[in-house]
Design a protein around this nucleic acid. Structure first.
Lengths: 240, 240
DNA sequence: CGACACCTTGAAGAGGTTCAAGAAATGTGG
DNA sequence: CCACATTTCTTGAACCTCTTCAAGGTGTCG
């Protein structure tokens, strides 16, 4: 076990409403505290888990930022998602008892380790947790549907617009600005996620700056015209 | 309730091993029989559920073939998957208590209707079912990762090759030929799934025929060179 | 301060799309 | 059961978006 591991409790975690079911009795809340075995710190660039690794636990992100990516033997590489505080990571491992992607910290991070057998055990008794686990998995499925729509039917500008809107929306839910954000990932990682080359991502950023839609200074992005981005994502005139 | 509904039992269904957990006691099997409320027949072209519809049940496909697709108001349309006998459909609905995509029968079909509250109830008591439900959802997440890899990093030929290999592999698991298949979907639907235009799908089929990789007669496809397709999907030389 | 990773921009090229026309298959109604 | 309408599929040619290759700029961290 990681030496930096720390004993903790969900019941007084300020992210509870993001990663845990709401409206539990005190009794149920106590049961949930058995859920998190330990916390674990991950340094920027390190992996939380890797492809092929035995699956034991789901992880709730307390702080930090992750990417999950699929790297095949033959050199293909696909970022399948970016995860931030309050989100659950590791669901891919359940089906085959081993992880099928890598989770890499894009900044120093801390996660709550939730052994999956314990999750199953407690969710047999706490209906709200059972339901919550199902919802989390379903949400991930629906999110991926959205990514498929993006990858399958959008052009570069639309993809980047959708990506940025999704990011700020999630950051906003965590109390951050609706219009300003700091990207934790490189252009290449954005490109991999969006099915574009890094040059295309860079060029598209530049185009948005020219248009007056964005202000971009390296990884600092300020959205000047949210509706413009929204129009790009929604306007049928841009569809093909 | 659908008038064509028929009372039935999982315990003597020949698809059980495809959609249900294995190695259950007789007692647990009896509990599972409470799971399927009714069966329902869907005619080709009809929907099993549609976007926005209230979510109540998961569906196990007994016979027939479905596509799930996301149609946005602004005219985008994305096929998110094709499902065949033994597969579970409807997971997208759990998170918001309403379906977020359409499930359309591509041929006359019959499904087992499994009310989700009953699934949750029984899986609290039958651990194997609980675990099975988790695995099914995780499998769908992993499948979608694969689609993201396909959409994000493959070119047209590679996408079609991966698509065909995946189809025959699943058909083979159901006792069909490893090398011959009848497509239940149009070129346009394949294209939507693969992020390509129907013309590109058609041209790519033609190219495979010229290469001697496939024999194609409308929707009848015979794979002459499985390894050739595999090489296309795996060979790093084709990556970009 | 120098090395390295990351980002930007240009120019040429490739892969896929669009538009268009026609052929083949499928379904429908008389 | 056949004729007609409709859907589906194929193929060509022009075009466009994104990629590739290349070079230089910017930022960051030991």
């Amino acid at each position: 076990m990681n030496p930096q591991a720390i004993k903790v409790a969900c019941s007084n975690c300020n992210l509870r409403e993001l990663c845990m079911p709401m409206g539990l009795s005190d009794q149920d809340l106590n049961r949930l505290d058995e859920l998190v075995a330990v916390r674990r710190r991950i340094k920027r660039g390190d992996t939380l888990f890797t492809n092929g690794e035995k699956f034991t636990s789901l992880y709730a992100i307390r702080t930090g930022f992750f990417k999950t990516c699929l790297a095949t033997e033959d050199g293909r590489d696909q970022v399948t998602g970016f995860q931030m505080a309050g989100e659950i990571i590791g669901l891919d491992g359940i089906v085959n008892d081993q992880h099928s992607c890598d989770a890499v910290a894009l900044e120093d991070a801390e996660v709550c380790v939730m052994p999956f057998d314990r999750i199953e055990e407690i969710s047999r008794e706490v209906t709200a947790l059972q339901h919550h686990v199902h919802k989390i998995m379903s949400r991930e499925i629906v999110r991926e549907h959205g990514v498929m729509l993006l990858l399958g039917s959008m052009r570069a500008e639309e993809r980047l617009a959708a990506f940025l809107l999704n990011l700020v929306q999630r950051l906003n839910a965590r109390g951050f600005s609706q219009s300003e954000l700091v990207l934790r990932m490189t252009r290449e990682e954005i490109g991999s996620y969006l099915g574009l080359k890094l040059e295309t991502v860079s060029r598209t950023f530049s185009k948005f700056v020219e248009d007056g839609t964005l202000e971009v200074k390296q990884r600092h992005v300020r959205i000047l015209d949210t509706e413009g981005l929204q129009r790009l994502v929604n306007n049928p005139a841009h569809c093909h």
